[in-house]
C-alpha cells in the first residue's frame, strides 16, 4: 500500500459510508460543507439586499400586484419533491444499488428542468407582459437577482447531476462516484433550503404585505 499525500494515518473506516472511506473523499466532503457555508453568506447578502429593496418600488408594480400563488406553489412542490427523490437516491447509494441511484437522479434532473421551466416562464411574464423588467425598480432588481441566482444554481446543479449520472453509468458505485453523488445531493438539498427562505421571505410576505 502506498502512503498517501495525506499525513493522517488511515483510521479504521470500515463502518463508514463508502464516500468517507478514502481520505480524499473525507477531505472533499468537509471542504464542500465549508463551501456551502460560504454560499450561505452569499445568499444571506442577497436576501439582505432584497429586503432593503422590497418597498422601493418606485411607483412600479409591487409584490402584491405581480405574485400569483398557483405557479409559485407549483414551483415549490416540484423543488421539494425533487429534493425528496434526490434523498431516495442517496438511500439507494447506501444500498450500493447503482440502477436505483441513477433512476432517482434522473427523476431529480427532470423535476429540476420542470422547476427551471416554470421559473423562466414566471420571469418572462413579469418582464414582458406585466411591464416589470429588472430595470423598472430597485424592488424588481432585488427580486430578479435573488431568484435568478438561485435559478442559476439549480441550472448548474442539473448539469452537475447529469455529469454524475454519466459517470455512475460508466463506472458504477465506487468510493469516488459515491462521494460525488453524495456531494451533489448535499448541494441539491441546500438549494431546496434556500428556496424555502425565498418562498417565505419573498412570496409569502410579498403576497401578504
Amino acid at each position: 500500500m502506498a502512503e498517501s499525500i495525506l499525513s493522517l494515518d488511515s483510521k479504521d473506516k470500515k463502518n463508514m459510508p463508502l464516500e468517507y472511506t478514502t481520505e480524499e473523499g473525507d477531505l472533499r466532503i468537509v471542504g464542500f460543507w465549508i463551501f456551502l457555508a460560504a454560499e450561505l453568506v452569499l445568499f444571506g447578502t442577497l436576501f439582505a439586499s432584497y429586503l432593503v429593496m422590497q418597498s422601493h418600488t418606485a411607483g412600479g408594480p409591487t409584490a402584491r400586484d405581480l405574485f400569483k400563488i398557483n405557479p409559485v406553489m407549483a414551483e415549490t412542490i416540484i423543488l421539494l419533491v425533487s429534493s425528496f427523490t434526490c434523498g431516495l437516491g442517496t438511500l439507494e447509494l447506501r444500498r450500493h444499488n447503482t440502477k436505483g441511484l441513477i433512476a432517482w437522479l434522473v427523476v431529480t434532473v427532470i423535476l429540476g428542468f420542470a422547476f427551471i421551466g416554470l421559473e423562466a416562464n414566471e420571469f418572462y411574464s413579469y418582464a414582458v407582459h406585466e411591464g416589470a423588467p429588472i430595470s423598472r425598480s430597485a424592488f424588481l432588481s432585488g427580486f430578479f437577482i435573488l431568484l435568478g441566482t438561485h435559478g442559476a444554481h439549480v441550472s448548474l446543479g442539473i448539469v452537475w447531476v447529469t455529469s454524475i449520472i454519466i459517470q455512475l453509468a460508466q463506472r458504477g458505485i465506487t468510493a469516488v462516484t459515491a462521494r460525488k453523488a453524495f456531494m451533489v445531493g448535499l448541494y441539491w438539498h441546500f438549494l431546496d433550503v434556500v428556496w424555502i427562505f425565498i418562498f417565505t421571505a419573498v412570496y409569502l410576505t410579498g403576497l401578504v404585505i
Partner: peptide
C-alpha cells in the same frame, strides 16, 4: 443591465 441596486433613481440605495 440597467438594474437599480445602487442608483439614485428608481429606488436604488
Amino acid at each position: 443591465f440597467g438594474a437599480h441596486f445602487f442608483t439614485i433613481a428608481a429606488g436604488g440605495s
